[in-house]
Nucleic acid binder design. Structure first.
Length: 669
RNA sequence: GCCAGCAUGGCGCAACUGGUAGCGCACCCGACUUGUAAUCGGGCGGUUGCGGGUUCGAGUCCCGCUGCUGGCUCCA
């Protein structure tokens, strides 16, 4: 059957007839913002294609604009190609890994003899600039496995990807090859892209699935190389370590600039920086990596958090308990932690012929409290709660401010209940957690459901896991929040719902957790006496609301950029007299505030007023109360808020009431 | 743990190709003090993370350790 001369196609929803041989580029001529097309062939799934691809009869085609998520991916991946070309131009011996788009940019991995330096990065940017200016086109070419092997004989990593793809290629093959590698060898046929100069000369080529922007010129000035790092080939620690170069890429220079400005803003919010500036906490080298000390101002916030969550636990029917920081080895063998997690526990200390471990978790000790006497079904659900100090030997490279530490405080609870009670208990805990987040003003988070993975890391039967997972899934889904699956991310003893929050620099951190555990009750031989006199095993629900007090603290600092709502602010009110003579008036106001439990003080220093305002603005004090002659005469004070706005001549009684109410209601001001 | 980079008074920075450490803020002292983000003057403070080496001489070069930063792996 010969090709028809006229093709019937659908372009952005509208039926059209075009001549055979028409390309996407022809359809969108003059549309500089279109970088690729999304084509749905007859009977096929939508697929991103180069603009240069010819249409077939019956194709439905949509424009992929550079600003759309797919368009940005195409742009960023194309930039990665230019980077790779630049690297091989300056370092001919470099072997290619993979080069996918990532959030805000791209990376490309290389095997090079000598790791890249910052100077190399500059040289690479220069070379990339040259390639971009040349306006090379990306030309797609379908090859067979054996052709690809012949052409890429010098590229061992690409050969490996071809091998992994396994010839025919199932739809999932790309995903299983390596994270990000689907951009090189996707489903179906293998393709090589040639970078072609104006004169038709092939400047460079790479095994790649595409699509790409039509010409390197489209990359314009919207990209930048950002950093270098090492990365394991195919993400496996056992593999060769490659050199990764990260970059960012945007449709225009303005958008690049805006991105860089966002990064600068994130840096200003970084809790490590604000922690030092606001005198909240520090990490003395003398104590050790990942071990924080809280200064008086940070201590206020920490105590407010503790007071809040302790009170809330009691209100929710938890019993406050206490357990030690160390324990003999056998306890953690019983719990299963030692066989499974010994390498993240600090090494033991030996005394009196016994091995003592710093505890990395509280549950085993709570189990002993449960077991300390006979338990009745009437007591269930029985809920134990404490601030448990735990120590985990986190690898040196992962310690990070307050969000990844080696010594942390969990607001840890364990609910012991019957299997029948478990769903309601999980529901209750989830409601508790979400209410807590709301009270702290957190809104940027999502839920994650961590389930059993493959391997022998997980204990218990499939049926038990299935049942526990379904209980958690049902509760999580009923919240209506975004729920992200996390296969293989469960604890060894059971599945988990967690709340994931994003920090200032885009990293996500696990905060609140709810875990369903049917294993430990069995390992500890926990039982209760049922109504019929029989002895039965409870299930336990682990839950941490903040997760780690330290991590939650760090996320709060970033969330508020250090400008805490009044109820959390270390200093809530500072009085600034316009001149010395008016200080007594403010002392009187502060006395009234303190009587209401407000953290208030008067700035009696001999700085001038303007300097005092600057000082307390920088300290992000929520209420600065200013008083001069007018205020004293009127029995009033003048508010200055953190945004610089003023409210002058407020009667003292009203001012006090206003502040007390702001603290009580936990609002932001 | 792996790769790379960094490490100067409390904080932020300076010190040409190696020649015996400077500045601002903070802090202390004194003077000043009338309306919303820095008053003026003076002073204290570092042997340049720790240990070793090269050199006539090291903050500057080399090695080891500790810590930090960015990734990777990991994360109960």
């Amino acid at each position: 059957m010969s090709e028809p001369a006229v093709l019937r196609v659908v372009v952005d929803g509208a039926e059209r007839e075009v001549a055979a041989g028409t390309t996407g580029a022809a359809l969108y001529e003059g549309r500089r913002d279109v970088v690729a097309v999304r084509t749905t062939a007859v009977g096929g799934a939508p697929e991103l294609r180069d603009l240069s691809r010819e249409l077939a009869d019956g194709d439905a085609v949509e424009a992929v604009e550079v600003g759309s998520p797919d368009g940005l991916d195409v742009l960023r991946h194309s930039t990665a190609h230019v980077l790779a070309q630049a690297v091989q131009s300056l370092h001919p011996q470099a072997k290619l890994g993979i080069g996918p788009p990532v959030r805000d940019g791209f990376y490309y991995d290389f095997d090079v003899e000598v790791p890249f330096t910052p100077e190399d990065l500059k040289a690479l940017e220069k070379e990339m600039q040259r390639i971009v200016k040349e306006g090379q086109t990306f030309a797609r070419r379908v090859v067979t496995d054996s052709e690809a092997r012949a052409e890429l004989a010098d590229e061992p990593y690409k050969l490996e990807l071809i091998g992994l793809k396994g010839g025919t290629g199932s739809p999932e093959a790309g995903d299983e090859v390596a994270e990000g590698a689907s951009v090189e060898v996707g489903a179906g046929e293998l393709t090589i892209y040639d970078n072609v100069r104006r004169g038709g000369e092939v400047a460079w080529k790479d095994l790649c699935r595409g699509p790409h922007v039509p010409s390197t010129r489209l990359l314009a000035n919207g990209w930048q190389l950002t950093r270098t790092a090492a990365a394991y080939w195919r993400g496996d620690q056992a593999n060769q370590q490659l050199q990764r170069v990260y970059g960012t890429a945007w449709p225009s220079k303005d958008e690049l600039r805006a991105h860089l400005e966002r990064l600068a803003e994130a840096e200003r919010r970084d809790h490590r920086r604000l922690g030092a500036e606001l005198d909240l906490f520090s990490f003395p080298d003398e104590i050790g990596s990942g071990l924080a000390v809280f200064h008086p101002r940070g201590g206020v916030i920490k105590r407010e958090m503790e007071d809040y969550v302790r009170r809330r636990h009691v209100e929710e029917g938890f019993d406050y308990v206490g357990t030690p920081h160390i324990s003999k080895q056998a306890l953690f063998e019983t719990s299963g932690h030692l066989p499974y997690y010994a390498d993240t526990m600090f090494p033991p200390m030996e005394l009196e012929n016994a091995q003592y471990y710093l505890k990395a978790m509280n549950c085993p000790m709570h189990n002993l409290i449960f077991r300390s006497r006979g338990r009745s079904y009437r007591e269930l659900p029985l809920r134990f709660f404490e601030f448990g100090s735990v120590y985990r030997y986190e690898k040196s490279g992962v310690v990070h401010g307050l969000t990844r530490v080696r010594g942390l405080t969990q607001d840890d609870s364990h609910s012991y209940c019957t299997p029948e009670q478990a769903p309601a208990e999980v529901e209750k805990l989830l409601g508790f957690v979400l209410g807590l987040l709301a009270d702290f003003g957190l809104d940027d988070y999502y839920l994650e459901l961590s389930t059993r993975g493959t391997g022998d890391k997980f204990i218990g039967s499939d049926e038990e896991w299935e049942q526990a997972t379904e209980v958690l899934r049902g509760c999580a889904e009923r919240t209506g929040l975004e729920l992200v699956p996390d296969p293989g991310g469960a604890a060894f003893y059971g599945p988990k719902i967690s709340v994931q929050a994003r920090d200032a620099i885009g990293r996500t951190w696990q905060m609140s957790t709810i875990q369903y555990d049917f294993n430990q009750p069995a390992r500890f031989g926990l039982e209760f006496t049922a109504a019929d006199g029989s002895h039965q095993q409870p299930v336990m629900i682990h839950s941490a609301k903040f997760g780690s007090l330290e991590r939650f603290f760090g996320v709060l600092v970033e969330h508020y950029a250090g400008a805490f709502p009044p109820w959390l602010a270390p200093v809530q009110v500072v009085g600034v007299p316009v001149a010395e003579d008016f200080a007594p008036h403010l002392h009187d106001v502060v006395r009234q505030l303190k009587a209401q439990g407000i953290r208030a003080e008067v700035d009696d220093s001999d700085d001038r007023m303007q300097k005092k305002i600057r000082t307390h603005s920088k300290a992000k004090v929520p209420f600065v109360l200013i008083a001069g002659g007018d205020d004293v005469e009127a029995g009033a004070v003048s508010f200055r808020y953190r945004d610089g706005s003023q409210d002058n001549g407020v009667p003292v009684a009203e001012a006090v009431a206003r502040i007390v109410e702001a603290v009580r209601s936990r609002v932001q001001v």
